Simulated scan of single mutants.
Amino acid sequence: MIEFTNWDLLRNLLLATRWTIALSLTAFIGGALVGLLLTAMRLSGRRPLQWLVRGYVEVFQGTPLLMQLFLVFFGLSLLGLDISAWSAAAFALTFFTSAFLTEIWRGCIDTLPKGQWEASRCLGLSFQQTLGRVILPQAIRVALAPTVGFSVQVIKGTALASIIGFVELTKAGTMLNNATFEPFKIFAMVALIYFALCYPLSLASQRLEKKFNGAR
């Protein structure tokens, strides 16, 4: 058994936390970009595009994130593509995030009165103009709170990347536990770090919900 001071344990966990944050940001930004495209396709009124988006969302919402990580990491390897654990985790989490953000944003847009779409058409505005100038400015206020709230799920979801060998906070905790045999101390530190990452976002989501209360 290797002897580590408490500072050694915390320092190593904080170093691994950088990768948790990097993976979370990559997945959230990538998922937001893909989600915007999918939301626009869903609202386009074209049935084939709507069915495509609906199928995409159902697949990634209806299957466990762990299975998605396995399929990306091992599936691409079987196809002869050499993919790193980082890339596989980033792709899987981006797909997962985009599916949920698409539904969150579609739901927020659906809360707006339908008459605004009809009034925009009467004014001769195109779909892009209606979406950009009329709908999105209002929907953003409604969507901010749930979007920030979902970022907490993205951060917690990065823990599953340890299964495919990506060394982030959870994987680092497991490795330190194997070296020190002090699971309670190490995983208590891991839990506190996750809490420190997630709690401010949860608090921000609650405050945004009160500030931009859609019903009010």
Rank of each mutant, 00 (worst) to 15 (best):
T174L: 15
Q68V: 11
G132L: 15
W51Q: 15
T63I: 15
N177Y: 09
S126L: 14
Q50H: 13
F127K: 08
E168W: 05
I135N: 08
R121S: 15
A92I: 03
D82Y: 02
F150S: 04
V134I: 15
P137N: 09
G62A: 01
P64F: 12
T102I: 02
S84V: 13
T63H: 10
T147K: 00
F60I: 05
L76M: 14
T174V: 11
W117T: 07
Q116T: 06
L69R: 08
P48T: 10
A145Q: 07
P183S: 07
T94V: 10
L144V: 15
A145P: 10
V167S: 09
I155K: 01
G173H: 04
A159H: 01
G80F: 11
T111P: 05
E182N: 03
F187K: 11
L81Q: 06
A143E: 00
G124L: 02
F100L: 08
F127H: 09
F60A: 03
V152M: 04
L160A: 07
I164Y: 02
P48C: 12
P183F: 09
L93R: 10
M67V: 15
V53E: 10
T174S: 07
L160C: 07
V148T: 13
T147G: 08
L136G: 10
I155W: 00
L52D: 03
F60K: 01
S98N: 10
N177F: 10
F100G: 00
M67S: 10
I109W: 09
L169N: 04
T97F: 06
V148Q: 11
L123F: 14
A119H: 06
G75H: 12
G149N: 10
E118G: 08
V134A: 06
L93A: 02
I83E: 06
L112Y: 03
L71S: 09
A159S: 14
L136M: 14
T94A: 08
F95G: 02
P113M: 05
L93K: 02
F166E: 01
G75N: 08
Q138H: 06
A99N: 07
T147F: 03
T174E: 13
F74C: 13
Q153L: 13
E182Q: 13
